[in-house]
Design a protein around this nucleic acid. Structure first.
Lengths: 121, 121
DNA sequence: ATGGTTTACGTTTTGCGTAATCATC
DNA sequence: GATGATTACGCAAAACGTAAACCAT
């Protein structure tokens, strides 16, 4: 039976309707860390700038908020972008934790340790 | 400058190398809730069973663990699958929270004209 | 025989890379 | 003029849908 009362959603949108993908979040984190689309693409993600530029643009369209400010020197996070970055990191960590927890659970002998964290205010 | 000491990773794998996507997690949650690939596909995800079957299979390959046990009555979560489900839900919630936090941060402190979507005080 | 999952295959979407363009300092 | 982001476009990979096959009850 479906137990879905573990958390309450802020809005009515169902989780199946989220268009955002982890790839977008990874790209955004790389850009934020590098401060530049160019170096993030080439040195971190091993992809091309145009690809990365488009993914970031798609992400901003999905969120509906401008996350970075483009300039000639590189990119700079907007206030909304900084907030988004923090949550984004946690989401990635959670996804990776899910994978590792499943792998750990599949091997019965290992004691499980919790990789816990708090969700922001 | 990259601030990345907010959490320590369990393994050396970089986050850019994660092949898992939120779509896989959404699909998995739907299957777990429905207890069946067929009804999850048709009634929740509005897609086809073969598509869903392949996505779940891909997810299991990525995680490296069998997450569901197929039977004639439907599907049943393996112990690893149950653990994975919990973390997966949190990851989805985090991702959605990131989006909403960014939208909230983009709103000025005092909205002069309310195109509000929430019935607040 | 029925309910449910998987395989096969053709179609369509979409992400990606190269090259060219625009903008800012 | 040089650095960096965007647009245009062709290609390749992957997701999707339909149909057929398989498996257990």
């Amino acid at each position: 039976m479906p137990e879905k009362d573990f958390v309450s959603w802020s809005h009515a949108r169902e989780i199946w309707e989220i268009a955002m993908e982890l790839r977008h979040l990874r790209y955004f984190i790389a850009v934020a860390d590098a401060g530049s689309l160019t170096v993030a693409a080439e040195q971190k993600l091993h992809t091309s700038q145009p690809s990365l530029s488009r993914q970031i643009r798609d992400l901003e369209a999905e969120v509906g908020v401008q996350l970075i400010h483009r300039s000639a020197h590189g990119v700079e996070l907007t206030p909304a972008g900084k907030v988004f970055l923090d949550h984004t990191r946690m989401a990635l960590v959670q996804a990776e934790a899910a994978k590792e927890a499943a792998q750990r659970a599949a091997q019965p002998a290992r004691p499980s340790f919790a990789l816990g964290f708090m969700s922001g205010a």
